[in-house]
Design a protein around this nucleic acid. Structure first.
Length: 230
DNA sequence: ACATTATCCTGCACGC
DNA sequence: TGCGTGCAGGATAATG
């Protein structure tokens, strides 16, 4: 029996989220883990037989509808797990940004442990979950921190500002994503987020008029304002 | 043990 | 016009 076949006959009981993972709870003590990566979309379609060409995985529901993973770039993943695997599966993840466990002290403790550039620390999903390349850059801009700054050398006030920026950025990102999904037929995560630095290389900073820069970090592009971010 | 790089995958922007 | 190249993204495997 394949892993996908282990889901057959089970009832969908709940849908939750942990960081960037969607958890589809199934009867019999199991769940599906979905990661949308960049362009994935997990949704229920009216007829599982009429799937878009970009649907990479699908489950037929008893009424003919389908639970599908639609992903043009095919980086998204869906996998079956027993409840017993849950703890180990997410053991490396940090707290949710809106959880009481995500405090300034927690962020400071994570930062103190490493000299790696703070942008990379934020991308690891270990100090806090939810930040990707765009939101990490925007949070660092809001906090006025240079993305190249060694994590352990960030001052107390800057860490406090960063904590607030992370919470604010992810709250807006989540709210706008939920609103986008609630539009009829809508899916436009991120489209409503007002970017200050991401993708704006060579353009002027809205705040100080400096020219926005782009640098490689961890194989990705990081955008920042050299005037605002020290 | 750590840090950097490659890999996955497709679509699109770009230069010639 | 059309083709080749490179880049975008998150997470993880592989390499240094």
């Amino acid at each position: 029996m394949t892993n996908a076949e282990r889901a057959i006959g089970r009832r969908i009981e709940a849908v939750k989220r942990r960081g960037k993972n969607i958890l589809v709870g199934l009867s019999g003590g199991a769940f599906l883990r979905v990661h949308l990566k960049m362009t994935g979309n997990c949704l229920v379609v009216p007829d599982v037989r009429l799937r878009a060409a970009t649907v990479r995985a699908w489950f037929g529901l008893e009424d003919g509808r389908g639970l599908v993973l639609d992903d043009p770039r095919a980086l998204g993943r869906i996998s079956f797990h027993e409840e017993s695997e849950r703890e180990a599966l997410f053991a490396g993840l940090g707290p949710e940004p809106d959880d009481a466990a995500f405090t300034v002290a927690h962020l400071a403790a994570c930062a103190r442990k490493t000299v790696k550039p703070v942008k990379l620390l934020l991308m690891e999903q270990k100090a806090v979950v939810g930040l990707g390349n765009i939101y990490a850059a925007e949070a660092l801009f809001q906090a006025g921190i240079d993305p190249k700054k060694p994590s352990s050398r960030i001052s107390g006030p800057k860490l406090r500002a960063l904590h607030g920026a992370i919470v604010g950025v992810l709250r807006i990102a989540l709210d706008s994503a939920v609103a986008a999904y609630e539009q009829p037929g809508g899916f436009a995560e991120g489209e409503n987020f007002p970017v200050a630095v991401y993708g704006r290389e060579g353009e002027q900073c809205f705040r100080c008029q400096s020219v926005i820069r782009r640098i490689p970090q961890g194989g990705r592009s990081t955008y920042y304002c050299p005037g605002c971010q020290k």
